[in-house]
Design a binder for these strands. Structure first.
Lengths: 211, 211
DNA sequence: TAGATTGTTAATCGATTAACAATC
DNA sequence: TAGATTGTTAATCGATTAACAATC
């Protein structure tokens, strides 16, 4: 449990700060003021300072923020200094796409196995990572540190699979299935990626713009 | 331009209402009150009524909401009664995964072509949809109605590609590249799906829960 | 020291919730 | 008609922005 609760609105912005600071770092920029950053990111300087000060004072009056230091600190806040092992449940197109997305590894996210019910996928490997049959799931989780389960399966099975994952000790679910998982366990965190919802939002804005 | 601006917070919730109403419809439920829906969706009844009344009075006092009617009206609000043709720029794993996701078609989203620079993909088809070489893009857009371009390419090329798409008349971009597209054109709408950001948010919540 | 810029408090703005009159 | 439930106004809550004293 956290001591003082930080709103998810703030958390949602942190990866974006991290991204911009990473680019500044690559560009060799040493320090930056909240004002300069605010111009680049199109948010207010006030918001940047408020957001950061939820986690501590990372800046220095009269100087601004040291880019490298702030980048690293935000990385720690986001847990990117830890290794997070991921299993992907559903080795279809999306599951394989995620597995091929090597960039996640730079942030400490490592996909260590895929699972599927389709016997045709038995023995197949994606980027050297093996697809297991779903009945091996419990064994695998018992013998490996699994931090996150990504659900990239049809929505019909997603909820029951999620419940099962929780029952065998998984505490974090990255859900791509188009359902709200019904898990009432405070210790389990769920992050949804609802692509259809995203597309519908885009569609709304398209139609609105036509008017 | 819209007459009265409706906040994106409201828009973000509409697809979720649509989903729940679709399920109620499939389950044969004829009418529902904001209160019953609020229990199922875990939001306040007040919010449901406020949200819906941004778009008009879809309910009836003493009765509630007709499920089929409300479902269809929200569909119209989201533009799902229109056909939206999509092209996918970047025919890698993610582009192909999106193309294989047939469910989008149920909502009027139709992928009509993929584009890539990789000559190895020339002539390849995904679910019967052809992968074109990127140099055919302008021609294709001139001869076909293209409503949305999905960017599933590496981030290095995303911004310049987006600018080019806008210059040839594309007004909506579904961006999967890990950059903020720099487009200052009011008539162009961008919807971002930043998977790394989503994963980092999950990671934050994992680490927070450990404490 | 003077100038710059943070950290933080106070003011504003917007979104959510509560309450209730209108009405089916 | 009586009961139920919306549509909508008013109250509350939280998030964003502005302001400025602290301080490097």
């Amino acid at each position: 449990m956290a001591q003082k609760e930080i709103s998810q609105a703030v958390i949602r912005r942190m990866p974006r700060y991290y991204r911009y600071l990473g680019e500044l770092l690559d560009a060799g920029v040493e320090r930056i003021s909240s004002n300069d950053l605010s111009n680049q990111m199109q948010v207010t300087a006030s918001q940047i300072r408020q957001d950061l000060n939820n986690f501590g004072g990372f800046g220095q009056q009269g100087y601004g923020y040291n880019v490298k230091y702030l980048y690293e600190e935000i990385g720690k806040i986001l847990g990117l200094d830890q290794v997070h092992n991921i299993i992907v449940i559903g080795a279809g197109n999306l599951g394989q796409a995620l597995t091929n997305y090597v960039k996640f590894e730079r942030f400490g996210f490592k996909i260590i196995a895929l699972f599927d019910v389709n016997p045709a996928l038995e023995g197949v490997s994606v980027r050297g990572i093996k697809v297991h049959m779903l009945d091996e799931l419990d064994d695998f989780c018992a013998n490996n540190k699994v931090d996150i389960a990504a659900l990239t399966m049809p929505k019909a099975k997603a909820d029951i699979t999620a419940k099962h994952l929780v029952s065998i000790g998984i505490h974090a679910i990255w859900n791509f299935a188009h359902v709200d998982l019904d898990i009432d366990n405070e210790d389990v965190v769920v992050e949804n990626v609802h692509l259809s919802d995203s597309l519908m939002q885009l569609s709304y804005n398209i139609e609105k713009n036509k008017k």
